[in-house]
């Protein structure tokens, strides 16, 4: 599987339609591709390029800028251990050592069974709960080395399957704009006037692109 599936292609079209310009959907579609395959495949990027009307080089150029996108297969669980200041002050190194020891890989590595990829991450916006880590972007706060070992055991045993989906899935609830409620994308090429509820400067309102 590499290109987006028919279902995901339908979803892709729905996402694209929300934006005034199709290219805006590029990052959401890369997420969709990563959710589908666990990482972003070359074929998926070509498909996305077709869908939003840019070159594959532009898709890859945008995609590689953002570190959440993986372009090689990673483990079912991506463990990101924060190492920025607050977490570092509160013992992030100990978490990393525990994880490296338990998994038998260094930061950046993937276990032989393809279950885990371990990354050293930067600030995860949970500084008061330091040290923290994320598994597939689900938090573990004020973690101890023991917590890390337990977490890895639980993940391996499938005890967290309900809470933590495989790598690539972020929110499990997607936005859906009902057709009868949505306004639709406001494209500057089509709309030049003020919105209906603005009356005050309506008389000076012409001249948009």
């Amino acid at each position: 599987m590499a290109r987006l599936t028919p279902d995901n292609t339908t979803l892709a079209h729905e996402i694209i339609a929300r934006y005034p310009k199709p290219k805006s959907a590029l990052i959401p579609l890369l997420h969709l591709a990563q959710e589908q395959d666990g990482y972003v495949t070359d074929e998926a990027m070509r498909h996305i390029a077709e869908l939003v009307g840019v070159t594959p080089a532009e898709v890859r150029g945008t995609g590689t800028f953002y570190e959440m996108f993986q372009f090689e297969p990673v483990g079912r669980y991506l463990i990101n251990i924060c190492g920025t200041m607050s977490c570092a002050l509160m013992g992030a190194d100990d978490l990393m050592h525990a994880a490296e020891e338990t998994l038998g890989v260094h930061a950046g590595g993937t276990t032989d069974d393809g279950m885990f990829t371990l990354h050293r991450a930067e600030c995860q916006a949970a500084c008061t709960e330091a040290p923290c880590l994320q598994v597939n972007y689900r938090y573990r706060f004020r973690a101890t080395p023991d917590d890390v070992r337990t977490l890895i055991d639980d993940l391996r045993a499938g005890r967290l399957d309900g809470e933590i989906p495989p790598h690539g899935t972020l929110a499990r609830t997607r936005q859906h704009i009902p057709a009868d409620r949505g306004v639709g994308a406001v494209d500057p090429d089509d709309v030049a006037g003020p919105p209906a509820w603005v009356t005050v400067d309506a008389d000076t309102s012409q001249g948009a692109s």
Binding site: I27, P28, Y66, E67, G184, A185, A196
Partner: peptide, 17 residues
């Protein structure tokens, strides 16, 4: 029920401070 109409589109980033 007013003339006020606006869509809010949820968009996720992908890791870049």
């Amino acid at each position: 029920g007013t003339e006020f109409s606006v869509d809010i589109v949820l968009h996720w980033g992908a890791g870049a401070y």
